[in-house]
């Protein structure tokens, strides 16, 4: 017999809500920056992205206070995203290189490294100030 199990399903779906989450706006605005300005001014509404769960590994965060530059993090980092200068005791974290495995945050003895929930990190310059943490 000729069976098309999809037909009743699509007809039903026609009256259901679409599955798409229209982030950041229902239709792509002409200019994202202008749209964001409007949102800030309260003239437009931003459709929020879905919530991320507890324990999500987003963009890496670094708190230089109390860091001893022990370089354990650099030793386990698979992406060469952490640079340690042991003489000056400084650590530079390149978030643009980071692959968000979270290995450094586990190995850090002082908990100076942590994963944030931020995931909208697209940028045209991966060495910009937001993407390089010192």
């Amino acid at each position: 017999m000729f069976r098309l199990p999809m037909v009743p399903r699509v007809l039903k779906q026609l009256f259901n809500k679409p599955a798409t989450n229209p982030f950041p706006a229902r239709h792509l605005p002409k200019s994202i920056t202008r749209f964001l300005e409007k949102v800030a001014a309260g003239k437009a509404e931003l459709v929020l992205p879905l919530e991320v769960p507890e324990g999500f590994r987003g963009k890496i965060g670094y708190n230089p206070e109390g860091c001893t530059a022990c370089s354990l993090c650099a030793r386990v980092c698979p992406a060469n995203a952490i640079e340690v200068n042991r003489e000056e005791k400084t650590v530079t974290v390149y978030a643009g290189h980071c692959i968000q495995c979270g290995q450094c945050t586990e190995v850090c003895p002082k908990n100076n490294l942590f994963m944030t929930k931020e995931f909208l990190t697209a940028t045209t310059d991966r060495y910009s100030e937001e993407m390089v943490l010192t």
Binding site: A19, P53, G102
Partner: peptide, 18 residues
């Protein structure tokens, strides 16, 4: 999608679970 969400919930990421 639901399973991706579940994996994200358990492991902290949607693709490379680490």
């Amino acid at each position: 999608e639901d399973l991706m969400d579940l994996l994200e919930y358990l492991t902290g990421n949607r693709v490379n679970y680490g």
